[in-house]
Amino acid sequence: MDELDRKILEHIQHFGRSSYAEIGGAIGLSVSAVNERLKKLEKQGVIAGWTARVDPLAAGNGVLAFVYVLIERPEHEAAFQALVRSESAIQECHHVASDWSYLLKVRAPNLLALEELVARKIKALPGIPRSQTVIVMSTAKETATVPVHLSPA
């Protein structure tokens, strides 16, 4: 990845609906060069996919929470991970190095739905003795933009 690839990645993260001509105009490349570079970045897995950012409140998800989950033993992880993959309210799941096993980012329409997920689905799984839920009051910054650094030469 070179400086032009970095500029393309930064541009499309902020202006994802730009045409190849608009991207090329912003960074000084032809349409065909932009097309070639984007195809290369997708093939290399640098671009993992194309999506739209949806406003969570406008989509009816007024509650944002982070849920710490403790799993007693490794044999209980498969069922937990299967639940995580099946629940659309769970946006992210991270295996963490702390007193907890996992950290979840959850968006729910209301507190009742959050409680249903945590108390009746997650904590109902075998091997999950406890969890801790942190409800977000407001958000100062949230971004899906990934900083792009040049690969070492």
Results as ranks from 00 to 15, higher is better:
residue 116 E to A: 10
residue 45 G to Y: 08
residue 96 V to F: 08
residue 53 R to F: 08
residue 62 G to P: 03
residue 71 I to S: 02
residue 45 G to M: 06
residue 121 K to R: 15
residue 54 V to D: 01
residue 118 V to Y: 01
residue 96 V to C: 05
residue 99 D to L: 10
residue 82 A to R: 15
residue 72 E to S: 11
residue 93 C to K: 03
residue 74 P to L: 04
residue 75 E to N: 07
residue 68 Y to F: 15
residue 111 L to M: 14
residue 74 P to V: 09
residue 44 Q to T: 06
residue 83 L to H: 08
residue 76 H to P: 02
residue 116 E to N: 09
residue 74 P to A: 06
residue 93 C to V: 08
residue 90 I to F: 07
residue 77 E to L: 10
residue 73 R to Q: 05
residue 85 R to M: 03
residue 88 S to R: 13
residue 90 I to Y: 06
residue 90 I to V: 12
residue 57 L to G: 07
residue 96 V to H: 09
residue 78 A to S: 14
residue 52 A to N: 09
residue 121 K to Y: 12
residue 58 A to I: 14
residue 117 L to D: 01
residue 108 A to E: 05
residue 120 R to T: 10
residue 90 I to L: 07
residue 43 K to H: 13
residue 48 A to N: 05
residue 66 F to N: 04
residue 97 A to R: 13
residue 85 R to L: 04
residue 115 E to F: 09
residue 46 V to N: 07
residue 86 S to T: 04
residue 120 R to N: 13
residue 113 A to P: 00
residue 76 H to S: 04
residue 94 H to P: 00
residue 95 H to R: 15
residue 121 K to P: 01
residue 90 I to G: 03
residue 103 L to A: 11
residue 100 W to D: 02
residue 82 A to V: 09
residue 58 A to V: 13
residue 110 N to H: 12
residue 92 E to V: 10
residue 106 V to E: 01
residue 102 Y to F: 11
residue 50 W to V: 10
residue 119 A to T: 12
residue 109 P to S: 06
residue 66 F to D: 00
residue 112 L to Q: 15
residue 120 R to W: 13
residue 87 E to M: 05
residue 64 L to N: 01
residue 66 F to S: 02
residue 121 K to M: 06
residue 67 V to R: 00
residue 79 A to R: 11
residue 78 A to H: 14
residue 93 C to A: 12
residue 115 E to M: 05
residue 104 L to K: 07
residue 108 A to K: 10
residue 64 L to S: 09
residue 45 G to P: 05
residue 69 V to F: 08
residue 69 V to G: 02
residue 97 A to L: 11
residue 69 V to I: 12
residue 89 A to C: 11
residue 117 L to Q: 05
residue 110 N to Q: 09
residue 96 V to D: 02
residue 64 L to M: 13
residue 108 A to S: 14
residue 75 E to H: 13
residue 43 K to S: 09
residue 112 L to C: 04
residue 77 E to K: 13
residue 79 A to V: 02
residue 59 A to S: 15
residue 112 L to K: 15
residue 47 I to Q: 00
residue 120 R to G: 05
residue 105 K to Y: 04
residue 47 I to P: 01
residue 46 V to F: 07
residue 56 P to N: 09
residue 101 S to V: 04
residue 82 A to H: 12
residue 86 S to V: 03
residue 114 L to G: 02
residue 98 S to L: 05
residue 101 S to C: 04
residue 105 K to D: 00
residue 56 P to S: 07
residue 90 I to T: 07
residue 55 D to C: 14
residue 87 E to C: 06
residue 104 L to G: 01
residue 89 A to N: 11
residue 92 E to Q: 12
residue 62 G to M: 03
residue 52 A to K: 15
residue 72 E to L: 09
residue 98 S to Y: 13
residue 109 P to T: 10
residue 81 Q to D: 05
residue 116 E to Q: 13
residue 57 L to N: 13
residue 60 G to S: 12
residue 52 A to L: 06
residue 83 L to C: 06
residue 82 A to Y: 08
residue 51 T to F: 10
residue 107 R to G: 01
residue 105 K to M: 03
residue 109 P to A: 04
residue 77 E to H: 11
residue 50 W to P: 01
residue 103 L to M: 11
residue 99 D to S: 14
residue 51 T to Y: 10
residue 63 V to K: 11
residue 42 E to N: 08
residue 85 R to Y: 06
residue 69 V to N: 03
residue 112 L to A: 10
residue 118 V to N: 00
residue 104 L to A: 06
residue 84 V to A: 00
residue 75 E to L: 02
residue 81 Q to K: 11
residue 73 R to C: 00
residue 48 A to P: 00
residue 108 A to I: 07
residue 72 E to T: 14
residue 105 K to L: 08
residue 118 V to A: 04
